[in-house]
Amino acid sequence: MQPLPQTSQRQGAIMLASGGLLMGTIGVFVEEARLSAMTLVFFRCLFGMLSLGAFCACKGWLSPRQLKSQFTRRTLGLALATGVLMVTQWVAFFDSIHRTSIAVSTVVFHVQPFWVVLMGAALFHERLGADRLGWIGIAFVGLVLASGVLAEGSLQGHQRYLIGIAEALGGSVLYASVTLIAKSLAGFRPHLLTITQCAVGTICLPLIAPFFAPLELAHISAAQWGWLVGMGVLHTGLSYVLIYGALPKLTTPVIAVLLFVYPLTAIVVDAVVYGRALSVPQLAGMVLIVTASLGVNLGWRLVPPMLARARR
Rank of each mutant, 00 (worst) to 15 (best):
T252W: 00
Q66A: 15
T88G: 15
V28A: 04
S177A: 15
R10W: 06
I243R: 10
L185V: 07
T7E: 13
I243V: 15
T7M: 03
H125A: 10
I97K: 07
L302S: 09
S36G: 14
I243A: 14
E32C: 00
A246M: 13
F211Y: 12
L234W: 08
L67T: 13
D95T: 04
R160G: 02
Q2S: 05
I195A: 09
W225R: 09
V116M: 11
S96P: 09
G148H: 10
N297R: 12
A92M: 15
L76T: 15
W225Q: 06
V178D: 09
M15S: 14
G187Q: 07
Q224N: 05
A271V: 03
L215M: 04
T25E: 04
I267S: 01
T25Y: 10
L259V: 13
A151E: 14
F211W: 14
V272P: 01
L169E: 01
R74T: 14
S147R: 03
L80H: 12
V116C: 09
A176T: 08
L242F: 10
L46R: 01
S221D: 07
L155F: 07
Y175N: 06
Q2D: 08
D95N: 11
R127D: 03
G164K: 05
S51R: 01
Q112V: 01
R309W: 02
P305T: 00
T106A: 09
Q224D: 02
A256D: 04
A81C: 14
D270G: 10
Q156N: 13
W135Q: 03
T291D: 01
I203Q: 01
L247V: 14
P210E: 00
Y274I: 02
V257K: 06
Q70I: 05
A17H: 01
G299E: 10
R309T: 02
T202L: 13
R127F: 00
P206W: 09
T236V: 08
V108K: 09
L242N: 11
G148N: 05
K183H: 13
M231N: 06
L278F: 14
P190T: 14
M119C: 02
